[in-house]
Design a protein around this nucleic acid. Structure first.
Length: 441
RNA sequence: GUGGGUGUAGCUCAGCUGGCAGAGCGCUAGGUUGUGGUCCUGGAUGUCGAGGGUUCGAGCCCCUUCACUCACCCCA
């Protein structure tokens, strides 16, 4: 057997309904907020990611799947989607039609990290990006939208972490203050932080090594260094979130790993997934479009970790696979051709049908029907054929009714319709109110 | 990239100090000659992750390697 590649996984039939439900819920919600879907290639020139994500980030330094095309061109399996969306915005000149573009996309990303719970080498994200709007209200609106998505999916135990990373005007002063502080602590910092000290000092903020935390316990906070514009922007984001009753936690240690972020940075965290606790994260990247040779346009976006979200939703919701309406049990070899015709006719008419062509004993067929969870079994043998009608057995109440072979499909559909009505009214009698926010499969 | 844990039947797992490869569930056939779930009886299924070593003899000990998993790291 040739197994799949380390860190990759198959999404099996029992799981796909959850994936689909989440994707559809997100798409419907995003569309209500004016987002349109964009579909992008999963391979781009390596340079796109090197320039957008930043040369000295972990992703570019050691996590990208990069290949040579053999003609000296280096191409990369995308490690994230934002760079591609920005490229499309620029290359297809979407800004010429309207600088304001709200786009979402769903698909796989690739990073060569060591796999663990909630972390795969091929993982899936839902991305949403807004171009051309700098107003803080759009920052807040994205978070409102995200928060509502998780409400619709009935997920609890979440928190919104919020920070501002400043802009090219105010960040240098903060970085300098941070670097000064790190110089004093050089003796005790861990090896990783010593490296980060020069290359990306802000990363030391979220280091978990106790010694580093100790050095950083009185670390300056970016929010104390924000310039007037950034401070005003940040406070408007907060008040807008307050208007929508979105609970959030100000987290001065929330740092994004990618170079292009400015101002608002946020993360939605869960307490139910172990170490990989971020199920969505994003922020503003006002300088990126220009940096990739596009027009000067502000932008903001987020990514949802679909694999992690599926994990959370599945925990709350037991899987439920599709079961046939009708199982055809035709006894004997000579009836298989007839059974074949019936199964095609039923399937084509929209009745979920299952059949076993093996010609086993009726007992074995019944057993199989039961295992598949079939609601009804169509039993046909030589006796029935002689009488011109087959038997339809209700597997729950064991009731059996004759069904004329002539016009069989219509008879069965009518019977199933009555049966459904019966079930519906029974449900209503029980009068259990459905929670509005819970999605159902 | 670095550490810890785990690899035995389709699944969940026993397997003592090194001595015939096991159980439950599932699958399958029958009991019931044409009726599922419960019950009873029988049956099939193994590269003990892989490769090497020690030994009369290895699932068990040693070395190497791979995979899964959790954590570090990083992030969604």
């Amino acid at each position: 057997m040739i197994p799949l590649i380390r860190g990759f996984k198959d999404i099996l039939p029992d799981d796909t309904p959850v994936w689909k439900a989440i994707e559809e819920t997100a798409a419907a919600l995003f569309q209500s907020f004016g987002f349109k879907e964009i579909r992008l290639p999963i391979v781009e020139k390596a340079e796109l990611f090197q320039r957008s994500i930043g040369e000295n980030t972990d992703i570019v330094e050691k996590e990208m799947y990069t290949f040579s095309t053999g003609k000296g061109e280096m191409i990369t399996l995308r490690p994230e989607a934002t760079a591609s969306v920005v490229r499309a915005y620029i290359q297809q000149q979407l800004y010429a039609k309207d600088p304001v573009q709200k786009l979402y996309t769903i698909g796989p990303m690739f990073r060569r990290e060591r796999p663990q719970k909630g972390r795969y080498r091929q993982f899936y994200q839902i991305n949403a990006e807004v171009f051309g709007i700098g107003a803080p209200y759009i920052d807040a609106q994205l978070i409102v939208m995200l928060w509502n998505l998780f409400e619709r999916l009935a997920i609890g135990g979440l928190s919104v972490q919020l920070n501002s990373l400043g802009c090219p005007v105010c960040r240098p002063a903060f970085k300098q203050a941070l670097t000064d502080m790190l110089e004093e602590g050089t003796g005790v910092l861990c090896a990783d932080c010593l490296r980060r000290k020069d290359k990306n000092p802000m990363r030391v903020l979220d280091c978990k090594v106790p010694a580093c935390r100790d050095v950083m316990k009185d670390a300056p906070s970016m929010t104390d260094y924000l310039c007037e514009d950034c401070a005003s922007h940040f406070s408007k984001v907060q008040s807008a979130l307050g208007l929508q009753q979105i609970p959030f936690v100000l987290n001065p240690r929330l740092v994004r790993g990618l170079d292009y972020y400015t101002r608002t940075a946020f993360e939605i965290q869960t307490d139910a997934l172990g170490a990989q606790n971020a199920i969505a994260g994003g922020g503003r990247y006002d300088g990126l479009v220009k940096a990739l040779d596009g027009p000067e346009q502000p932008a903001i976006g987020f990514a949802i970790g679909l694999d992690r979200l599926v994990e959370l939703v599945s925990q709350a919701m037991p899987q439920q696979s599709l079961t046939p309406d009708v199982f055809i049990a035709a006894i004997g070899e000579e009836l298989q051709e007839k059974a074949f015709e019936w199964s095609c006719a039923l399937g084509l008419s929209g009745v979920q049908t299952e059949i076993d062509f093996s010609g086993k004993s009726l007992k074995a067929l019944m057993k199989r029907a039961d295992r598949l969870g079939a609601a009804h079994v169509l039993i046909a043998g030589s006796q029935e054929m002689a009488q011109g009608s087959v038997i339809l057995r209700n597997m729950k109440n064991k009731e059996q009714v004759p069904v004329p072979i002539d016009g069989m499909v219509d008879h069965i559909k009518q019977y199933l319709k009555d049966y459904q009505c019966c079930k519906e009214s029974e449900k209503k009698k029980k009068a259990i109110p459905e929670p509005v926010r819970v999605i159902r499969f």
